[in-house]
Design a protein around this nucleic acid. Structure first.
Lengths: 210, 210
DNA sequence: ACCTGAACACCGTTCAAGT
DNA sequence: ACCTGAACACCGTTCAAGT
């Protein structure tokens, strides 16, 4: 019932093994460093062997994005609507922060597959169950998602190479732009957690009642 | 006072000419198609000549992003705070929609240059002038920006290749996911304009009073 | 100061051949 | 059914040489 065919020998390659190795490669070296050849080297295999399990580089990246999305946990079933939406948003954020260098794959690519639709279902189902008409449910979900994507893009791209932000603060103060200079101490640092909670509350408030 | 040196001959290459040609290349063929070599070919020049005016491919892409940002018009000076913020947001959106294939350069890259700071100044100045303390001004601006970036990413990535959305609707209905199927007609289409106005109103309302 | 071209170390993917 | 390797048409960038 579980084995796809009667082949017990652990074949070297599989779509899953490739995607996981790809994710590890992104985690370690970043998105720009991903190449079919390097990934094949890492798996001890000819580059062209990957094409037996994955449709090409773009499909590989989509597959890695789906691995990230699959890590979002289902919200507790006894939660009310607001708790459910909040849990999904926090789960989404946690999944992205677990793999910050791969997160842009989810945040910037149009994902069309079935498995990419699962989180949409998880958010839409409680909205409809709470009595939201489908058009308003979709509308509200889109607004929340836009905020989540924008916030996470900022959080995940925040250059970790950027040592102390002291230099950045000095640059901002010396920018010659008066408002930027005046707000420099607050521009130089960002409490991502607080920004996330602040914006999420706004968006969930805006959802309103069915 | 304006000429940098007494060289009247219109030298073939300049940073600006390169950035504009780069933007045109992105507009026509998309981001993935951009290469230093192809851009040089388009300019009738050796690929390596570009490096005299631009620091490399990454700097080229940053430069193109700055060209986009520079197209955001200054808001009318007599406008009140809300009108000013709204005008900036609409100007930002219009600038991105003028070059949808280049927009991800602005929306997904961390821009550090001075010219990328100009729009921040334009938004921060009226907030401070209206009496917002700098920490709240930065906080509010970040929330609005996150929403704008997320919304515009969706709008700009929406595959224009995707013929009628009839096929997509059928896929969604047949997904086996009940909530997705129930909301399929609304998931299949997106009124980007309305989503933008809806979310912008929420974020500007959330700014509150100083 | 700017432009050139050869060279280096890479890419993604097609295709014919193997087992 | 899966894996291989040669081959093709590309990349970004360094470096030495030209003017």
């Amino acid at each position: 019932m579980t084995a796809r065919r009667g082949r017990p020998s652990p074949s070297v390659l599989s779509r899953d093994r490739i995607l996981l190795a790809g994710l590890a490669l992104v985690d370690e070296e970043g998105l720009d460093a991903v190449s079919m050849r390097k990934l094949a080297r890492r798996l001890g295999v000819d580059p062209m062997s990957l094409y037996n399990h994955v449709d090409g580089k773009d499909a590989l990246l989509d597959g890695i994005a789906e691995v990230l999305l699959a890590a979002i946990p289902a919200p507790p079933p006894e939660a009310d609507l607001r708790e459910t939406m909040s849990a999904l948003a926090h789960g989404f954020r946690a999944a992205m922060l677990d793999h910050p260098r791969a997160a842009p794959l989810v945040l910037t690519r149009r994902l069309a597959s079935m498995t990419a639709l699962a989180p949409v279902e998880a958010a839409l189902a409680p909205l409809l169950a709470a009595g939201f008409p489908p058009d308003r449910a979709v509308h509200g979900l889109r607004a929340v998602l836009a905020f989540l994507i924008g916030t996470l893009m900022r959080e995940v791209e925040a250059a970790p190479t950027f040592g102390g932000s002291v230099q950045r603060l000095a640059d901002l103060s010396a920018s010659g732009l008066p408002a930027v200079a005046a707000a420099a101490p607050y521009l130089a640092v960002c409490d991502h957690e607080a920004e996330f909670e602040f914006g999420l509350r706004i968006m969930l408030d805006a959802l309103g009642e069915p």
